[in-house]
């Protein structure tokens, strides 16, 4: 009897119902896969074929020239390099600031530390994007001031320095403004580390650096890896801030550069090159996702649990 109940407990309605649900599930999956495949197919098609109305078929023969043209003529190569630079720098800065600050907030229970903890968490409530306009103008003013200082010091009145149109500034902005929510999450995890571990290490004469890197960090490695991956993908894909900050074309990241690519090729109806550019910009992220799928999905669960 009990055995039977066990079998029933997962039943999900009638057979017709199950098939209906399955069709809905796979239907939604098609709305996700199809646009991606279509993008890939179009990127491998010569634009002539595409404009003649062959928009659905898989290209035959495949036409790889689109990728070379996007990479070279439209500077996608340079944009990719810029994006990689910004993303890696952002993630490194982010990882250092995130782990150390969380460690201090979680394990140093001094009165003023508690105050700063509140300070970070209250700021979490401010929607970051709303600060984009004020932040840009503030950094522009600081940049103007720095420029006049540099001009005064070097004695060169034509020295130009634009703080905002700078990949390093952009990385610092990304890393710092992303901090509050991840700090909130990681501090929660670090509280879970038994205090006696750290006390024992301190009594044995371990330095703070040693405790932090050898005891605390290994404990929270999976969640930090997840947060860094999220930050990597978020930075790679970020659009509005990069668009606002970067003026000189040689500094463009992929998401800003694609607009340029579309302006260059889209208006000649050269869609092959446009879609090749789109594929170039999403391929690294896709690879990262395939490799770290489990970490990312489990991390998504974890990050919700703490709130």
């Amino acid at each position: 009897m009990k055995q039977r109940n066990n079998k029933i407990r997962f039943s999900a309605g009638s057979t017709a119902m199950r098939w209906l649900l399955r069709i809905i599930l796979y239907g939604w999956a098609v709305t996700i896969i199809f646009p991606l495949f279509w993008t890939l197919a179009t990127s491998l098609k010569s634009s002539k074929v595409f404009m003649q109305g062959d928009v659905w078929n898989w290209p035959d023969p495949m036409y790889l020239t689109n990728f070379f043209r996007a990479w070279q003529e439209a500077n996608m190569g340079a944009y990719t390099f810029n994006t990689l630079f910004v993303t890696v720098l952002t993630v490194v800065l982010f990882a250092i600031m995130l782990t150390t600050t969380s460690y201090i907030l979680a394990k140093y229970d001094f009165k003023f530390v508690k105050f700063f903890e509140k300070y970070y968490f209250v700021s979490m409530m401010i929607p970051g994007m709303l600060l984009l306009v004020p932040l840009f103008f503030q950094l522009r003013d600081v940049g103007d001031w720095l420029q006049s200082v540099i001009r005064f010091v070097t004695g060169n009145p034509n020295y130009t320095f634009v703080l905002t149109d700078n990949l390093i500034t952009l990385s610092v902005v990304y890393a710092v403004t992303a901090l509050p929510t991840p700090i909130f999450l990681l501090t929660g995890f670090m509280r879970g580390i038994d205090k006696s571990f750290l006390e024992a290490a301190r009594i044995d004469g371990a330095s703070e650096m040693y405790i932090f890197t050898r005891i605390v960090l290994p404990f929270v490695k999976p969640i930090v890896l997840f947060q860094c991956l999220t930050q990597f993908m978020g930075t790679w894909n970020e659009y509005m801030t990069a668009l606002t900050f970067l003026e000189n074309e040689k500094n463009y990241t992929l998401s800003v550069g694609i607009q340029k690519l579309i302006a260059q090729f889209g208006y000649q109806s050269d869609y092959g090159a446009v879609f090749a550019g789109l594929i170039i910009s999403l391929l690294p992220i896709l690879l990262l996702y395939v490799v770290f799928q489990k970490t990312i999905q489990n991390g998504t669960d974890m990050s919700e649990g703490i709130k």
Binding site: W28, I32, N237, S281, I285, Q293, I296
Partner: peptide
Amino acid sequence: FIYYLPNILSVVV
């Protein structure tokens, strides 16, 4: 795997 894909792709793409 499929359902999560749109979350990682760039909003531009």
